[in-house]
Design a protein around this nucleic acid. Structure first.
Length: 769
DNA sequence: GAGCACTGC
């Protein structure tokens, strides 16, 4: 049973995979919640593949391409692996389509595959394809760009499968390597890679902070962002024979950009790949794929541009379409008959009606309840009310155990929400934000979004994955009818600054001509171009500069990348400090937890004030990072004493390490900084001034001057902004402030605020700092 | 004195 609530959240479906999920070092079992496999199998998890097995021999046999006229019918199923796993794989809806998929891709370069979550497409499609003839590594001749000399290179041999999120990529890779029966090891960026000779394996993955690509990898899972990064070094994606783009329906900016680059590669002249085509499989969990299909269909004009029409030009370039039929239990969807005046009350009524009327368990499993709410506060409120009311129930009614689930909860608490309740005669109720929707916890679910009808319909279908289900929409059928058909893709909702720089750095001169499924407004592209010019990433002709090329090497937004470059300049010489600050800011939510009560504030006031700096939030972040890194004892204890977000501080340290490494590799740092812990020494005021001037290089537009009436007005546009109460500069008057973020809520608020001098701001605009 | 959620390099 699911209860859903109107919410603006992004939806998401997880990829295939098992019912056990690894997050960092933790293994989270989804059993008893949204179990994907029949009970029997999940109760008897197959043994891990033995590392003693003759892996190399297996590989040699399995990786053999088909010979000449070898019959496909007689070929063994791909990769031995575990026989129990093979049985599960054979039961997947996609299994019966494998010959069809192979035969399509033998003839065509592009396949659009629609299949529900759980159809097995993410795990099986790459395994269906890696032995194909076209998927083997080949020698090819390409002309060198400058000299025109011919050079022999390797093209192809690997399949890339992109995922929107890291957890999905790593989880799927683990799953597929198990199925394939080959170890998933190799170079790990965390320095924990195993000793001894590098192992061989069919499957690898590459995500930020974590790369495991064993020797002989044929199937590589990566995040969309990571493939975009690879595109910088390898514009023709020469190491790949095929790219599988999974979860394209989510329409992230990254997947939209990736689609554009892939379209250019498949419609281009292929000279950069020595004439060897790149196969592309586009996978979507939603059926309304007309736009995607049209986008990848090669129009006559595209083809004419790509190559002069030849006898074979009219075949082989169109998009093949294949829909996988899923298995579905019926889902009863119920709307309210009239608009709900109080959503909280309606939620309670629905939950308790279900609780008293529905059995705790039926033959399909437990009847737990999952409800989606909009935010943490709403969840905490609902939990209080439910528990209060549950206490008044008669003793013959089952007990209730409520599990809240939102991003700010500790990993342990999030983990709890996925465990079956151990107390007998008790129903589990999970109250979640859209965190439960993401592959973060590997669980697919339903969530009504007022903006997307198609996904609401799709989600309702999902309630019937393990057995008949019910879906309660706490709004009327009429409001459902008013929902938009689909979501607005992210690229139309957000700033395109980063997207434009991504294109420019990958050789796109005319960004307006770049193929996109949903091109943003020309005006917003123009604004981004101007902003990039101001940042020094583009020259007067709109061409990428050396500065711009260096900026894209750093995994931060363009303004932060500009700050990093400025900080590396000998005139400023504050790179390590800038990196510390940027790491803290980009690690997620604020590293300082918001304190609600006066009491909580008093508890940590003394310790927090040790970190405060009169210069503002940036220098405060710097102090926090330096003290945290200097901490020799338990860093988690250090965080808790100051009510700081432990998870984000750990993440900040990861980012800091990555940015330092990149700075070193690209010559911004002469030598590696000394290892932690280093003794803390406060940053002197003149150094603080240099740091703030560096940030002005990236954020000159985000400055405001003090007005005679004590308000602040932005330097450009003269909009009134107020310093956010979470800032250390709240309530203070400074002649000018720089803010890295702003939100418009009750007021126009500036966040991440620093005190600067009006003169510095003027200099930043003149570019004369 | 505030307040939506989540993702990526």
């Amino acid at each position: 049973m699911r209860t859903e609530n109107m919410s603006k959240k992004r939806k998401h479906e997880s990829g295939g995979g098992g019912n056990v999920l690894k997050i960092g070092n933790k293994t989270i079992s989804l059993e008893g919640y949204l179990t994907k496999r029949p009970k029997k199998e999940s109760e008897n998890p197959p043994p891990p593949p033995s590392t003693e097995a003759p892996v190399e021999e297996t590989l040699a046999e399995d990786q053999k391409p088909l010979k000449g006229n070898e019959s496909r019918k007689t070929r063994k199923p791909p990769v031995g692996g575990d026989p129990q796993l093979l049985k599960i794989r054979q039961a997947l809806p996609i299994w019966d389509y494998q010959e069809k998929i192979r035969s399509i891709l033998e003839k065509k370069d592009v396949l659009l595959l629609v299949g529900e979550t759980g159809s097995g497409k993410s795990t099986q499609v790459p395994q269906f394809l890696f032995q194909e003839n076209w998927c083997q590594k080949r020698k090819a001749k390409v002309k060198q760009p400058g000299s025109g000399k011919e050079e022999e290179i390797n093209v192809g041999g690997m399949i890339a499968i992109t995922q929107p999120r890291r957890v999905a990529a790593t989880t799927l890779a683990h799953r597929v390597s198990k199925e394939a029966g080959t170890p998933l090891s190799g170079q790990s960026s965390d320095g924990k890679s195993k000793r001894g000779p590098p192992s061989k394996g069919l499957v690898g993955y590459s995500v930020r902070f974590d790369h495991r690509v064993p020797q002989g990898t044929k199937i590589k899972f990566l995040t969309e962002g990571m493939l975009l990064q690879e595109l910088l070094r390898d514009p023709h994606l020469r190491q790949y024979s095929a790219i599988v783009v999974d979860e394209i329906h989510e329409r992230s900016v990254d997947v939209d950009l990736l689609s554009g680059f892939l379209k250019q590669i498949i419609t281009g002249d292929k000279a950069g790949r020595g004439g060897i085509p790149l196969k592309v499989v586009i996978m979507s969990a939603t059926a309304n794929v007309e736009k995607i299909r049209n986008f990848f269909s090669v129009e006559e004009e595209d083809r004419a541009q790509a190559a002069p029409p030849g006898p074979e030009a009219s075949t082989g370039s169109s998009v093949e379409f294949l829909q996988i039929e899923g298995r579905q239990f019926p889902v009863e969807t119920v709307h309210t008959t009239k608009p709900v005046p109080d959503i909280q009350e309606e939620l309670l009524k629905t939950i308790f009606k279900l609780h008293t009327e529905e059995p705790l368990q039926d033959k399909h499993g437990k009847n737990d309840i999952l409800a989606f709410l909009t935010g943490q506060e709403e969840i905490e409120g609902a939990q209080r009310l439910i528990e209060e009311y549950a206490g008044t129930l008669a003793s013959n009614v089952p007990k209730i155990k409520v599990f809240p689930l939102f991003g700010q909860l500790s990993m342990e608490a999030q983990h709890d929400a996925f465990q079956p309740v151990k107390v007998p005669f008790t129903r589990k109720i999970v109250l979640a934000t859209n965190i439960a929707e993401t592959a973060r916890l590997g669980m697919e679910s339903l969530l009504a979004k007022p903006i997307s009808k198609s996904s609401a319909v799709q989600r309702a279908g999902r309630a019937g994955r393990e057995g008949p289900g019910k879906c309660f929409r706490l709004y009327t059928e009429e409001s459902f009818d008013t929902l938009q058909q689909t979501d607005l893709p992210e690229i139309l909702r957000t700033d395109v600054l980063g997207a434009i720089l991504t294109m420019k750095a990958r050789g796109i001169e005319d960004v307006l001509a770049f193929p996109l499924m949903d091109p943003p407004e020309v005006e917003s592209v123009g604004k981004a171009l101007i902003h990039l010019h101001m940042l020094g990433a583009l020259d007067g002709h709109g061409n990428i500069t050396e500065t711009g090329r260096k900026m894209v090497l750093f995994p931060v937004t363009a303004p932060y990348a500009r700050v990093i470059l400025a900080a590396a300049d000998p005139r400023y010489n504050c790179l390590l400090e800038a990196i510390d600050i940027i790491a803290c800011i980009t690690a997620g939510d604020d590293i300082f937890l918001q304190l609600r009560s006066e009491e909580a504030r008093e508890d940590v006031e003394v310790l927090r004030k040790e970190l405060w700096r009169r210069e503002g939030d940036l220098l405060t972040y710097l102090t926090a990072m330096q003290r945290y890194a200097a901490e020799n004892a338990d860093r988690a204890v250090w965080c808790r004493a100051r009510k700081m977000n432990t998870r984000n501080m750990r993440q900040a340290l990861n980012i800091r390490k990555q940015l330092r490494g990149l700075a070193l590799r690209h010559g911004l740092l002469a030598e590696a900084p000394p290892a932690d812990p280093q003794p803390f020494a406060p940053t002197p005021p003149d150094q603080a001034e240099l740091i703030l001037k560096c940030f002005l290089k990236g954020f000159a537009l985000k400055t405001a001057l003090l007005m005679p009436d004590s308000s602040y007005a932005t330097s450009v546009g003269k909009h009134v902004v107020a310093v956010h109460p979470a800032s250390v500069l709240h309530g203070q008057k400074k002649e000018a402030v720089m803010f890295l973020e702003h939100v418009y809520t009750q007021k126009n608020y500036a966040k991440k605020v620093s005190a600067v001098q009006a003169e510095w701001v003027a200099q930043a605009f003149e570019g004369g700092l």
